[in-house]
């Protein structure tokens, strides 16, 4: 038996919106400690990873570990039937064939219940190692979304250069080229404002990435004020959006290399 309650449906809506473009179907692994999801896009170049800890839910019960395969488009459609402030409960019995999702209004005078069919999803899982990144950029997630949007008007790829001075995003295309530099601020305090950027760096590092994936990652911006971009030579770039006090979404993207 699985039962998880979130006080606000908006959080679950944002989580599913952040990954549904990249992944159409995914396995949600429920265990005593919380929920995990790992899924790759069709081309296996981007990996989405979600972790929600049990203590972030207002109620959480998982009697035995269980994997639920869910079509994210269907999940998203059902979540659109919830008001943002509704309490949401998800529930599945052992060996269930569907996931029960119910919404309760703040006044507790309206309760709706939906069932989404579960599916067997055969996916390749990867073992993501803990890595010592050479550079970590911490910046406003809104700023990140804006840069991605701006760069897409010119090119299809973006180069991220992290140095002690800051982080530079650049692109080029048939129409021309452009770059945006965010200077490093030593401390991110209120004086600097929430839009400031920090770059923790051991060694300068540069990667080129396909912008279309970053546009998908930027859909996680409503979940978190900040995003961290973690770079290391010869490995996927990791983008992390923290989900307030309960976990995170991480996206790993393989860099473009010259053939």
């Amino acid at each position: 038996m699985i039962e998880a309650v979130l006080p606000q449906a908006s959080l679950l809506k944002k989580i599913i919106e952040a990954i549904k473009e990249l992944v159409s179907e995914a396995n949600f692994d429920f265990s005593e400690t919380g929920i995990r999801l790992q899924a790759m896009d069709k081309s296996h170049i981007a990996l989405s990873f979600l972790h929600l800890r049990n203590d972030g839910f207002s109620e959480y019960r998982c009697d035995r570990s269980q994997t639920l395969g869910i079509n994210l488009e269907s999940f998203s459609k059902v979540l659109k039937c919830a008001a943002n402030d509704d309490q949401v409960q998800i529930k599945a019995t052992d060996k269930a064939e569907s996931l029960s999702i119910s919404f309760e209004s703040t006044a507790k005078d309206r309760v709706s219940e939906f069932n989404v069919k579960l599916m067997d999803i055969d996916i390749d899982s990867v073992d993501v190692p803990d890595m010592d990144y050479q550079a970590t950029v911490n910046m406003s997630s809104q700023e990140f979304a804006r840069i991605v949007r701006d760069m897409m008007t010119i090119g299809e790829a973006i180069t991220i250069d992290a140095t002690k001075q800051g982080v530079k995003f650049s692109t080029s295309g048939d129409a021309g080229e452009g770059n945006i530099l965010l200077r490093h601020r030593k401390t991110i305090d209120e004086e600097d404002g929430p839009s400031s950027t920090s770059v923790e760096i051991n060694e300068p590092v540069s990667h080129s990435l396909a912008l279309k994936f970053l546009a998908n990652f930027a859909k996680a911006a409503p979940l978190a004020d900040r995003v961290s971009i973690n770079l290391i030579e010869d490995a996927p770039v990791m983008f992390e959006f923290k989900i307030s006090d309960m976990g995170h979404i991480r996206f790993y993207l393989a860099p473009q290399i010259e053939e």
């Binding site: 296996h44 899982s125 993501v128 396909a210 490995a235 393989a254 290399i257 053939e259």
Partner: peptide
Amino acid sequence: RNCQRQIVEYFGEV
């Protein structure tokens, strides 16, 4: 020409 290796080429398969 630019190309990308798949994620599994960086991280091992489970």
